[in-house]
Design a protein around this nucleic acid. Structure first.
Lengths: 230, 230
DNA sequence: AAATAAAATATTGTATTCAATCATTGTATC
DNA sequence: GATACAATGATTGAATACAATATTTTATTT
């Protein structure tokens, strides 16, 4: 996870969440000054968070021109989804070689959570859908794989923010259910195939016609993220 | 690539190379002060480089306790190699779907370079061997995949530094040759299998008996890395 | 002599400061 | 009216300075 200074973590974390939840849209400028004021920290601290986010591909840091939310091209968008397919294929194949009992249990618990907030809290619902994939990766027991999946899922959110019209229904609940069933049956091929189709569906819904930037007031948006909203 | 400030890049780059070339061994402390003196920059600048390296997994940054070269456990070591297998499998499968002509040409050029420095310049030879794998990834055309491979290859160097006795012969030249031949023949299965065996061989040679730390003077080592040695 | 406590030292965390670069606006010229 | 240039303002780059935390050394006690 993120170590380094105590103060820069909240900045990093809030920015990250704001980007993933699409409150900060691709291309939006991230001035060190105003962000620092929002969190009552110095630019030094903000900068550390931005360097980190740049390394993770969520932020674009250019010399002397500051930071902005990464704004992937359509080519990069395809690239990111293709990478995600690779990583999640690996997840499925590893999981299906393991004892399915505890895995399925954890997954079903998560699914219940997803179902609970469906049509109730959209933002939370979308976040949970993403976290389903991260949970899958974590259940492999490989921290590195889980990290990579975490990163790529975040970047997919960015791609959706950039290219999908409504960011509704990124992940279908039924599809998650079916993936769990395949894992429970220990059928690696089916699980892998279903995951592939699932992701392909998300990608298809996303990469149709691009809608362009409607910039927004950074400080106002970020203010809502100062206190971690659970 | 690495953007951000002009000054911190040389620090980042030198540290990175020093770690990969195993001049800075796992666990070695990286005090901001002395590194700053070595490069004639402030701690602020050094810190940015360290945050970046931490994000890439080459450096371990702990709150109030500073940075040190990452010191993977044996479990993490296996994890890293497994991840590498996944990524490089993807590389092989993508390459074998493409036009082999320009790919093979580039690879053979690199191989010639590798052969040139074999038994002449060990350090360079080892670096070229690693770069062969990075070149393979770059030839897929996917920047993201290339980035990941670059990162994981670096971390493998770290693992070798930690667990392999002599860091000789990480990659056999003949094995690289055979991989190219399989790509040239357009035989995805054979190419993938050879890559798998190749990496497995490296892993096997590495993860036998661990030898422990002989700490060294950071500044002296780094001094050799100040001017990028080509 | 071993163990603990206290002081001194070293190192990191972070804000502040000044310099350098970029963006924008206004003005002059064609 | 459009373009080029200059001046201003805003923003980042990076060093310094001070505060907070860790580490080491020394002193004290058992």
């Amino acid at each position: 996870m993120y170590k380094s200074s105590t103060r820069s973590f909240p900045v990093y974390d809030s920015l990250r969440k704001a980007i993933i939840e699409q409150a900060l849209r691709p291309g939006v400028k991230l001035p060190e000054d105003s962000i620092g004021e929002t969190f009552s920290v110095s630019r030094t601290t903000v900068r550390n968070a931005l360097v980190r986010l740049d390394a993770e591909g969520l932020v674009d840091l250019q010399p002397n021109r500051g930071a902005s939310v990464a704004d992937p091209t359509i080519e990069e968008a395809h690239d990111i989804f293709e990478m995600r397919q690779c990583l999640e294929r690996e997840v499925m194949q590893r999981l299906c070689k393991m004892d399915s009992k505890p895995i399925v249990k954890a997954l079903k618990a998560h699914l219940a959570e997803e179902r609970k907030y469906l049509d109730v809290d959209t933002t939370r619902s979308i976040r949970l859908a993403g976290e389903f994939h991260i949970l899958l990766a974590e259940l492999t027991g490989s921290k590195i794989l889980a990290n990579y999946v975490n990163e790529i899922v975040s970047r997919c959110s960015l791609v959706l923010a950039r290219f999908a019209q409504a960011h509704s229904a990124q992940c279908g609940l039924e599809e998650h259910t079916e993936i769990i069933a395949a894992i429970e049956a220990g059928d690696a091929d089916r699980a892998t195939r279903r995951m592939h189709n699932h992701l392909h569906g998300v990608q298809d819904r996303a990469l149709l016609n691009p809608d362009d930037d409607d910039k927004d007031n950074v400080s106002d948006i970020l203010a809502r993220y100062v206190t971690p909203n659970s």
